[in-house]
Design a protein around this nucleic acid. Sequence first.
DNA 1: ATAAATTTGATTGCGCGCAATTTAATAGCA
DNA 2: TGCTATTAAATTGCGCGCAATCAAATTTAT
Lengths: 148, 148
Amino acid sequence: MDMPEYGFDPLKLSNQLCFPLYVCSKEIIKKYRPLLEKLDLTYTQYITMMALWEEDSLSVKELGDRLYLDSGTLTPLLKSLETKGYVTRTRLESDERVLAVSLTEEGKALRVKALPIPAAVAACTSLSAEDARSLYDLLYKFIGNLRG
Amino acid sequence: MDMPEYGFDPLKLSNQLCFPLYVCSKEIIKKYRPLLEKLDLTYTQYITMMALWEEDSLSVKELGDRLYLDSGTLTPLLKSLETKGYVTRTRLESDERVLAVSLTEEGKALRVKALPIPAAVAACTSLSAEDARSLYDLLYKFIGNLRG
DNA sequence: ATAAATTTGATTGCGCGCAATTTAATAGCA
DNA sequence: TGCTATTAAATTGCGCGCAATCAAATTTAT
């Protein structure tokens, strides 16, 4: 027989922290889509390019560490970026297990077209600078705690 | 010819707000996986069940509005939940376009097995109560701004 | 030197997530 | 009454996201 319940319901959607995280992530990525379409990139491809714009020639492993993605996601994604002509994939002579991913000239040039994107997306959100900063800090605190 | 750049780089991964959102969402859902496995639910199925535990018998449309999901995601997901025996799918006589999703007895009973999950996940995060509250509030502020 | 363990990446398979299209049913209106 | 517009789901197709497995190369310990 069911007992009546009082007070806090741990299973209410509005009592979850994960649910708004999940929604925010999806909804904000949705804002990127029309902008990235012009560059022929998906969001995951975009952050991969960002990692390479910061440091050209990274291994799949290094990319995975920085982007929190594994090879099951990266391998087909990198092949797709190679097909688009944005990156090359070359195995190291010194260690044939390591696949080095590097930008092509076209891939490097794409960065200029991507430059206005962050501000364009930020314009959709209308969070104050302080709120955005707080959110940023809390998210990284969260990630830091999770990694273990 | 390239100009040297000074100061803020809008395309640095560490200058993005979306990236840590995306990572947090994925990493926290990863924490749910082993817990939900025991209930034979994925995370998306879990939040669908949560919506139904809150209010039994919702249309696909209502579920989509509450969960920020569309029919392309929900239709196969709900068929899967039906196959597992957790929900039924019935069209309304009054309006045959509307598909009512309702809990079976097994689906209702599953709630008890799910009760300890939120606390178990919260234990992984070790955010203080105040930080969790701040994060929660900022995320909903963010969602509120995005909906337009 | 050689066997065992580790590391790196590829592959496979499944479940979203979503845009676009289609089908069916209802509501609004001349 | 019909005609149109709208709404609700389903369907299709593609790209992740990730667990699990596999193969190859390297490191290590004996």
